[in-house]
Design a protein around this nucleic acid. Structure first.
Length: 287
DNA sequence: GCGACAG
DNA sequence: ATCTTGTCGC
């Protein structure tokens, strides 16, 4: 996949100041309005698929597509938008220190997996809050490069606009590819929910507004939403997801899309599959 | 100086 | 993110 903005690649060798400066450029280049042909109903995943089905792991690409049943259009819409889930697992050395990133990209269309791809990339810098894209951006692009199908929506594991400079991982990857993207994080990096999020029922959502940690937005600006994708009937102990726009998707549409992509589990299906695929490739890597 | 911080 | 078994509750 050709990059729309190769000049904005997250180069891990940049200084911290240069990284932050680049993120301001990313935020400026990001489109925070809806600019896509997606409707939540056209990307919806109705049925939670079995993860075991989705793991051909030892084989990416064409063979995996065949395994997944693509090509045999049995009642499924071949023109539906392609949603790609992205996630990573890490290989560790003897000391237990992260050694390389295994990035996975799993493509869904009309509710079914149509392709698996992955890439293993040496890690260059440690995790630093706010600079995640400089650690994981390169590896993610490598996985996207290994993917044959063209994405209509990218679902990233991490924040998009919910970020100190409104340029989280999802925003960065979306702008580089000029593809619509959303960020799905399991914990909140910055910003403040309108209401307490504890013990909410499935489907519940509340805006996340910029606080003083967000240096590029007026305090109070809606930068994403807390979204309760799943909850246990009685005891509310599942934490909500934090959904934010990446590129070319509004805050409101981002939650609606993620809602449509969830099928009974806390994480949206594309993310669950990318997670499982990255783990499988990682396990398969040792021996 | 202290706190807070996606994966 | 990763190191890890059983276990309590849907």
């Amino acid at each position: 996949m050709d990059l729309a903005r190769p000049d904005l690649r997250p180069d891990p060798s940049l200084s911290r100041d240069e990284m932050e400066s680049l993120q301001r450029d990313i935020a400026a280049a990001a489109t925070l309005d809806d600019d896509h042909g997606l409707d939540p109903s056209t990307v919806a995943v109705e049925e939670a698929a079995s993860l075991a089905d989705g793991l051909p792991p030892a084989r990416d690409g064409a063979q995996a597509r065949l395994d997944a049943g693509a090509g045999s259009a049995d009642g499924h819409d071949p023109d539906a938008p392609v949603v790609v889930g992205l996630d990573q697992a890490f290989l560790v050395d003897r000391e237990g220190a992260p050694d390389a990133a295994v990035s996975a990209a799993v493509a869904f269309r009309d509710g079914d997996v149509i392709e698996f791809a992955s890439a293993t990339t040496p890690l260059s810098i440690p995790y630093v809050p706010g600079l995640l894209a400089f650690r994981e951006g390169g590896p993610i692009l490598a996985a996207l490069d290994a993917l044959d199908v063209a994405p209509d929506l990218l679902v990233c594991d991490g924040s998009g606009r919910i970020h100190f400079r409104e340029a989280g991982l999802a925003t960065h990857v979306g702008v580089l590819c000029d593809a619509p993207s959303v960020g799905v994080a399991k914990s909140l990096l910055c910003g403040e929910p309108d209401e307490p999020t504890d013990g909410r029922p499935a489907g519940w959502r509340t805006p996340i507004r910029a606080d003083d940690a967000v240096t590029t937005a007026e305090p109070g600006t809606v930068i994403g939403h807390a979204f309760q994708s799943r909850q246990y009937p009685n005891s509310g102990r599942v934490n909500p997801l934090y959904v934010s726009p990446g590129h070319r998707v509004s805050a409101a549409t981002a939650v609606d899309l993620v809602d449509a992509l969830c099928a009974g589990y806390k994480l949206p299906e594309p993310t669950r599959f990318a997670d499982a695929h990255a783990d499988a490739v990682k396990r398969n890597a040792d021996r």
